[in-house]
Amino acid sequence: MISVCSIDDIPEGEAFRFNADVPIAVFNTGDALYAIDDTCTHQDASLADGWVEDGCVECPLHAACFDLSTGMPSGPPAKKAVRTHQVIVSDRTVYVAINETPAELPVGEEIGVA
């Protein structure tokens, strides 16, 4: 379990990006907080810079859409899902429990933290 940020650091419709084994982003849809791997599985772009709508995040580069609760892409150009992670809020602090399965990265990218 990682202590990530204060809940006040993630306004509605925004995301907070942090580095774990790979970059992870916590999104606030207004209804709930969701954590997914931050890197689009199509090309290296930060999903935290994308647009949140209807429980999905749209990648800012090529409009791949990922379901924030399942990590599944809704269609091309992304084919692989991003990992999802459990989010817990306690005393206004946001905690993320990292999913232990290996991350899916875009073709040609190696695991490494920027």
């Binding site: 990006r17 931050d38 090309q43 772009a45 930060s46 580069l61």
Partner: peptide
């Protein structure tokens, strides 16, 4: 990729 306010929003590999 630029926002409508002109700010650079995204680019391939920008996060690194």
């Amino acid at each position: 990729t630029y926002g409508l306010d002109g700010k650079l929003v995204a680019a391939p590999n920008l996060s690194s």
